[in-house]
């Protein structure tokens, strides 16, 4: 299995920008979640971020709050998420990333979480409420072999981007706008300026842009300035009213991927 950064590098080399899709574990249906995940990969997603739910997701807007709560109501926890991961890993070599808040990880046991994640085939983790200030307290040596992907936001000064870049592995997650997930861009040129600033300051890692990317148009707009995009709320929103074939969601994913192929490097 390739590392996340090598995988992104290879795709970029072929002239393709990355599409990473966020799904909430066990949402919308706990019985066919692994199939959904594989269909999303087949439809064009280059990698998946699988969100394990938390009762108090304070970086998320209403859509992912909803999917998170629905997953909890469906009885989804880390154990079931690891099972999905194992099933999906059997069928794909693409990068799989676990994403979620610090407390379920702490409660599971930090070392046990890292061990289970590796055992089930995860390549990396994103824990949005563990900034670099808490990095050493949280990501101990058991995370060796797992990428720890850190976030950069419009409030991050340049010298701090350097520190985050050094600690981050896999890629850096560039949050294109100050806000919770699912926000809409008010000022797209300001976001583009910020993404340019970030990419200039990031030396070590690939830069993927997320938050506020919901359509092929958004992807086309931002992709020239980064190595790939992350789509979360738009996919979850589409899944809320989906039938069991997930037709609309899969078209959304393939349309965004197609848009990314048209982007000139």
């Amino acid at each position: 299995m390739k590392s996340i950064s090598n995988y992104i590098e290879e795709k970029n080399y072929k002239g393709e920008k990355i599409l990473s899709v966020f799904l909430t574990s066990g949402f919308p249906n706990r019985n066919n979640f692994s199939q959904l995940a594989l269909k999303v990969l087949n439809a064009g997603a280059d990698m998946l971020e699988i969100g394990f739910p938390f009762s108090d997701p304070l970086a998320d807007g209403p859509i992912i709050q909803h999917s998170s709560q629905a997953a909890l109501d469906n009885g989804i926890n880390l154990k079931s998420t690891f099972n999905y991961l194992k099933e999906i890993r059997k069928e794909t070599n693409k990068p799989l990333i676990l994403m979620g808040y610090a407390n379920p990880v702490l409660s599971h046991g930090i070392k046990r979480f890292a061990d289970d994640a590796k055992l089930c085939g995860a390549n990396g983790v994103i824990i949005p409420d563990v900034p670099i200030e808490e990095y050493e307290n949280f990501f101990d040596e058991s995370f060796e072999g797992l990428d720890t992907i850190l976030l950069i936001t419009p409030t991050t000064p340049n010298e701090r981007i350097n520190l985050i870049d050094k600690k981050s592995s896999g890629f850096v997650y560039c949050v294109s706008i100050s806000g919770t997930t699912g926000v809409h861009h008010q000022d797209k040129s300001a976001s583009i300026d910020f993404i340019k600033r970030t990419r200039k300051a990031v030396m070590k890692n690939k830069t993927l842009v997320g938050f506020g990317i919901s359509s092929p148009e958004d992807a086309r707009l931002f992709a020239p300035y980064c190595d790939g995009v992350i789509v979360g709320s738009a996919v979850i929103k589409s899944l809320i009213n989906e039938d069991s074939n997930f037709g609309n969601t899969l078209s959304l994913v393939s349309n965004i991927k197609d848009a990314l192929k048209e982007v000139i490097k």
Partner: peptide, 20 residues
């Protein structure tokens, strides 16, 4: 100096809030 009372406290927040 890091805002900890022993092991408690700290700054477990999304990156957006760190600078403010």
């Amino acid at each position: 100096i890091d805002g900890r009372f022993g092991k408690y406290g700290g700054k477990y927040v999304p990156e957006t809030l760190i600078t403010p």
